[in-house]
């Protein structure tokens, strides 16, 4: 098992608020890593740091043992480190087809059929503007876009947010197949059975610090023993 991403002593935040207070994180290659925690624990912030949307105030980030702390979002995306944000993850004023084309062309692949094979429902919506899709379809489109980019590392924020359990289950299952194909997956979510079931390694964040890291199986007894 080798490390894909290593985040060391990361401090980051928005304006005057520091959200991550010196977080350490190791993302193993080709596995599914889950970042769990309640709202405000720093999960999304961590993903934004990994994707380069939020600069580190201190600490460092390495990717395949190269330091990328100051690399731009665009360069990370081009090299295959791709984030699917929790909201505003599709271009609402563009059609579904254009949404797919944009990312396929930008990453050097031009064929959008793999996305349509993975999510047949999108085929019927190709000429529709992404802003008119339902929440679940929008989520699918966002994931389909990420699929077309064939990323090395896929960061997914709140996959299940606002989705029915059935749709969420489908998407989680799909994510599992992506990971089986060798892509490193990092998943930020609240405590859900699906996330725990999918993950190879779990980090629990609490107020911008790591309060647990290990096997998902270890987590359940620890959590229930924790006094509230």
């Amino acid at each position: 098992m080798s490390a894909e991403l290593i985040l060391t002593n990361a401090r980051a935040g928005y304006r005057t608020i520091e959200v991550l207070h010196g977080l350490d994180l190791i993302i193993p290659t080709g596995k599914v890593t889950a970042l769990l925690g309640v709202n405000g624990a720093g999960k999304s912030t961590t993903l934004r740091v990994l994707a380069g949307l939020l600069p580190l105030r201190s600490g460092s980030l390495t990717w395949q043992s190269k330091t990328i702390t100051t690399m731009s979002t665009l360069d990370r995306a081009r090299r295959g480190l791709m984030l699917v944000p929790d909201e505003r993850a599709v271009f609402a004023t563009l059609t579904v087809r254009e949404n797919l084309q944009i990312i396929a062309e930008a990453t050097g692949h031009h064929d959008i059929t793999p996305a349509l094979e993975a999510f047949p429902r999108l085929r019927e919506r190709l000429t529709q503007r992404a802003g008119t899709l339902s929440g679940g379809e929008r989520r699918m489109l966002a994931l389909a876009r990420a699929l077309l980019a064939r990323p090395r590392v896929l960061l997914v924020d709140e996959l299940s947010l606002g989705l029915s359990p059935k749709v969420a289950g489908e998407l989680f299952a799909w994510l599992g197949t992506v990971a089986d194909g060798g892509t490193t997956v990092v998943l930020a979510d609240q405590y859900t059975e699906e996330a725990l079931g999918l993950a190879d390694i779990v980090y629990v964040l609490h107020r911008g610090e790591c309060s647990f890291v290990g096997d998902p199986a270890e987590l359940k007894p620890t959590v229930s023993a924790e006094p509230v």
Partner: peptide
């Protein structure tokens, strides 16, 4: 309004 956001456990 969310006075504890951005604080660590100790500060909370």
């Amino acid at each position: 309004d969310e006075p504890a956001s951005g604080l660590d456990g100790q500060e909370t």
